[in-house]
Design a protein around this nucleic acid. Structure first.
Length: 476
RNA sequence: GGUCCCAUCGUCUAGCGGUUAGGACAUCGGCCUCUCACGCCGAGAACCUGGGUUCAAAUCCCGGUGGGAUCACCA
């Protein structure tokens, strides 16, 4: 692997134990932006050393999520499970140099000691039982790092500033487990060093791990990278974001009809800002992104603002693209192979009145229904004597309307309202219900244009037939 | 509990010693209008607390309080 001297190299290193969540996505985004800003490399690494909990399904979901968000990687994906020999090699080196030792304390013993220490108000720190026993390998043994018991380790964090830790707070952590796999803190260090990572950007839940890792870098003779710990994302109750705060998986947002650029724009502004600007294109983000303007405090995830951004991007979005994105949502609602050209017209009608593609699909359904299934209550209210008369009058005008345009249609409708000396809306609402089955829809002229004259006539006729005159009179 | 981090409207944030403390979402009015939206105009709404430093503190320092993270053969 060739690494030019000043090249920025960042990475995203999720563990495949679940879907990519909102917090992970933002971490990935920050790393990606930082690399892109400096023309560096962004690397993807799957941390699957925990054989128990890692799944291929999660790995696939992570790839899919990142692709959807547009976070392409330049190297990888690397899988830690396939790099086992590298960690073992590093462990061997530390062992030889006396910087690590084997330990045969059982998990049960350790657990007991921990509990006891806690109960007596002491620190639950490894007591060093095996530290100087110079043990050889045996089944069930692990390898521990010999951590210095005095001195100070400082993390010069790019976001938090310098953070100091007393080495005596750090204990002899396990670096190789009984199954031969490395533990997280060790694998991360070996990988980040060997992959030439220059900037480790991650959640600040890792800040406390960093001094141990720095000690490991030094013990292994590696150069220590720069660290940047970004604040966490919390739920509305200020606790760590989790399922009970609503959807947290990136793909769930795709399914809920969000646009990737909306999610990206939302996530980047959680903790980062650029003056008063709220809307950013990817190009702008790459140009403006900087760790200097990442805040220090945790942010509460606010679905309302995400919704607003999504609505914004739908409103401003390219119609052709939106139509293509909408089609799967329509098909999921039993619209059979919709015509792209027609869907594009529908999208135009609905663009400024949908916050998600799900909302758009829901309100688009009537366009595709040959027969409107009228709600009895609405029918009774709007297809009364006046309503039916307006519909009939409009139908009559429509037959001879030479100007089937927005203006022509509006003129015809106004004509009817003026002739009967009634408000325009009293003419329009029955027609709206007849055409859409609802009282809420895009502008009626627009609906008619999109539907086409023939379809409009058919639906109006259908509405007139809907309630039998006899039944209607009976009610009156 | 130990260690570490954090603290400006309900929420995201701007502010980097001197501002009527700005913007955005949300909320509430109004306009537009064929319904619903969009759009436009407007309103209410914040510097956790106590000490310092300074002519001057949201901004710098210390204490307190509050919130969060972390203390595994998880990552």
């Amino acid at each position: 692997m060739t690494t030019s001297e000043n090249q920025v190299r960042t990475r995203f290193a999720p563990s495949p134990t679940g879907y990519l969540h909102i917090g992970g996505a933002r971490t990935a985004l920050f790393n990606w932006l930082y690399a892109r800003h400096f023309g560096g490399k962004f690397i993807l690494r799957i941390e699957d050393t925990d054989q128990e909990r890692s799944t291929d399904e999660s790995t696939r979901a992570i790839f899919e999520s990142m692709e959807w968000l547009g976070l392409n990687w330049d190297e990888g994906p690397y899988h830690q499970a396939e790099r086992k020999h590298l960690y073992q090699e590093a462990v061997r080196k530390l062992l030889e140099e006396g910087k690590a030792y084997r330990c045969i304390c059982t998990p049960e013993e350790l657990e007991m000691k921990r509990k006891k220490a806690l109960a007596e108000g002491r620190k639950p720190k490894y007591d060093g039982t095996c530290r100087d026993r110079n043990l050889d390998w045996r089944p069930g043994s692990v390898v521990r790092f010999r951590s210095p018991d005095a001195g100070l380790t400082t993390v010069n964090d790019l976001i938090k500033g310098p953070v100091h830790f007393n080495n005596e707070e750090l204990d002899d952590l396990i670096i190789e487990r009984a199954d031969g796999y490395p533990t997280y803190n060790f694998a991360v260090v070996v990988d980040d060093a060997q992959m030439g990572i220059t900037h480790v950007i991650r959640g600040d839940d890792h800040l406390n791990n960093t001094p141990r890792q720095i000690l490991l870098y030094k013990a292994l003779g590696y150069e220590v990278p720069a660290f940047a710990h970004v604040p966490m994302i919390l739920g509305a109750d200020k606790t760590r974001l989790s399922k009970r705060h609503g959807a947290t998986s990136v793909l769930a947002y795709q399914e809920m009809g969000y646009l990737p650029e909306a999610l990206v724009n939302y996530l980047v502004r959680l903790g980062w800002s650029y003056g008063d600007q709220e809307i950013f294109s990817m190009d702008e983000l790459i140009r403006y992104f900087s760790l200097d303007s990442v805040g220090k405090s945790a942010a509460v995830f606010n679905p309302e603002k995400l919704l607003w951004l999504n609505q914004h991007y739908i409103k401003e979005g390219d119609t052709d693209r939106l139509a293509r994105l909408l089609i799967p949502f329509l098909e999921a609602r039993n619209v059979k192979s919709p015509d792209l050209g027609f869907v594009k017209k529908v999208v135009e009608d609905l663009k400024s009145r949908s916050r998600t593609l799900v909302e758009m699909a829901d309100s688009a359904l009537f366009y595709f229904q040959e027969e409107i299934d009228h709600d009895p209550e609405l029918a009774e209210k709007y297809f009364n004597r006046e309503g039916r008369e307006y519909i009939a009058a409009f139908l009559e005008k429509l037959a001879t309307l030479s100007d089937y345009t927005k203006e022509g249609i509006e003129q015809a409708l106004r004509g009817i309202s003026e002739d009967r000396a009634t408000k325009l809306k009293y003419v329009i609402q029955p027609i709206r219900v007849a055409l859409t089955g609802k009282t809420v829809s895009p502008g009626i002229d627009q609906v008619m244009l999109t539907l086409g004259r023939e379809q409009v006539q058919k639906r109006l006729l259908g509405a007139l037939k809907h309630i039998r005159p006899a039944a209607q009179e009976q009610r009156r």
